[in-house]
Nucleic acid binder design. Sequence first.
DNA 1: ATTTATTTTTAGGTTAATCTAAATATTATT
DNA 2: AATAATATTTAGATTAACCTAAAAATAAAT
Lengths: 225, 225
Amino acid sequence: MISELSFTEENYLKAIYHLSNEGGESVNTNSLAESMSTTPASVNDMVKRLAQKKLIGYQKYKGATLLSKGKKVALNIIRKHRLWEVFLVEKLEFKWDEVHEIAEQLEHIKSPNLIKRLDKFLGYPTMDPHGDPIPNEDGVMKETVRASISEVEVGESGIVVAVNNDDTLLLQHLDQIGIKLGSRIHIIDRMNFDGSISISIDEGPKQFISKTVAENLMITLTDKK
Amino acid sequence: MISELSFTEENYLKAIYHLSNEGGESVNTNSLAESMSTTPASVNDMVKRLAQKKLIGYQKYKGATLLSKGKKVALNIIRKHRLWEVFLVEKLEFKWDEVHEIAEQLEHIKSPNLIKRLDKFLGYPTMDPHGDPIPNEDGVMKETVRASISEVEVGESGIVVAVNNDDTLLLQHLDQIGIKLGSRIHIIDRMNFDGSISISIDEGPKQFISKTVAENLMITLTDKK
DNA sequence: ATTTATTTTTAGGTTAATCTAAATATTATT
DNA sequence: AATAATATTTAGATTAACCTAAAAATAAAT
């Protein structure tokens, strides 16, 4: 059994998971410090603690890597975070750009039974409102095939599953144009002079989005037609 | 504004509220220590901190009293606790004797907006699954007129709104006889030799409950008939 | 009104999680 | 390969929340 971790320990594990490409690579002290909004010295302290608990591997000057125990914890936190996000958006009618901070708190509630029941209540979702996959109880999540709109060929279409950027301004902009998760986007044309792209949203009228917006908008590719 | 309290500080304020009869009386160090499962020395430390923050009044050797700011915090925690309990029972199908610990965690989630929306989602309930009233945003709650079944006269009936005891065995026992919150109880007769009481539950067949059970079962009185 | 018992407070220490500033490794540059 | 730049670690402190043990104040009992 995994003893009982503090919120901080859980957050470090989650950060390591994200910074290491799903636990593959090793994470260096400085980037962890930045991601946790703290100092390298503090990270160093914590990294030692986590290594002692066999949650991460750590060698001086070589950075941290998730061990299986630590990865399991990280994936469970992510699972909880994303399930709560679904709850907040689907049931409490939050907008998808408002839920992150609250989910950051809710993800630390300790009760496996609660999460089982929440999962059931939500109808066993596999994606959160940002289009990120929700790991199952064993930490396994569906691989999603996605591409940014800027990479997709003219004529193709797909479903918006993620926004590659936490910038509130972008999120609000998307809201204004009427793009949200689940929107079906058809790529009509690409302008050569500034890279902007014309699309239709949910079979609606033609609209333009800037290159920057297109780069940050991820869709799942579906059949060409 | 109330700066930003730690979970522990919030729990102390809640404990003081409960031990002081809704913030009326002053609470002594020892009983607070017992209620918080800690030592009098630790309580003494915390009580000083809270007094410095003007949340409670405190004079050496005279115990602690809630100040208006502290009472507001306490009532808000209680509001959140009870709303979450309703959510757990009504939406996630927990039994009412399973929700306390989880609500103890959820009550500390910080987001006024979350609670507003949760309240709406639940249909603005005024009572939690244990029959305790839920304070509104201003800390005001409906006065509930209640009595233990042992005090009620033969012939009267009412709705079960609370169990005066956290004992799991009692709660499970009630579950077995089929008594739950919202059950309508009719008091048929009282046995003189052992104080046990015959009742009917939701217009069902006559059943006996012991004096002890009757003492712990609180109902709201309705019209005699 | 003393003495005894209880309650409360002080004093001094511990642990987790943080910090700043200084020292030491590692990596990059000439 | 020596030096400069960057990254990492150590050393030493701080704060919240706790602890034990001893001292002091209050309340109860004779």
